[in-house]
């Protein structure tokens, strides 16, 4: 079963992230992901970019991934 660290690496390999946090129990994961690639995209497209980075692992290894996606600008207003 993948660890949060694994999931973090999988995402970073496929998507340029300026900030990323992943928590989870091995099957269900929650992630906060900040990427310039999200700019100008709706929530659906942003999540699709993350799923594309994860590829087939998303079905085979990871049962569920809840995510909060931000552009760097949005993230800077968050903290």
């Amino acid at each position: 079963m993948p660890t949060p660290e694994n999931v973090k690496t999988y995402i970073e390999q496929g998507l340029e992230c300026t900030h990323i946090e992943v928590h989870g129990d091995g099957r269900h994961f929650e992630a906060v992901i900040v990427s310039p690639a999200f700019a100008g995209k709706g929530m659906l497209q942003q999540h699709q970019l993350v799923y594309k980075a994860l590829g087939d692992r998303m079905h085979e290894e990871i049962h569920a991934l809840s995510m909060k996606t931000f552009t760097p600008e949005q993230w800077s207003k968050q903290i």
Partner: peptide
């Protein structure tokens, strides 16, 4: 191009 369930469609379009 959405790998998980559930999936909601409204008027033929994936909502999420």
């Amino acid at each position: 191009n959405w790998p998980t369930f559930p999936q909601l469609y409204i008027k033929g379009e994936l909502i999420g």
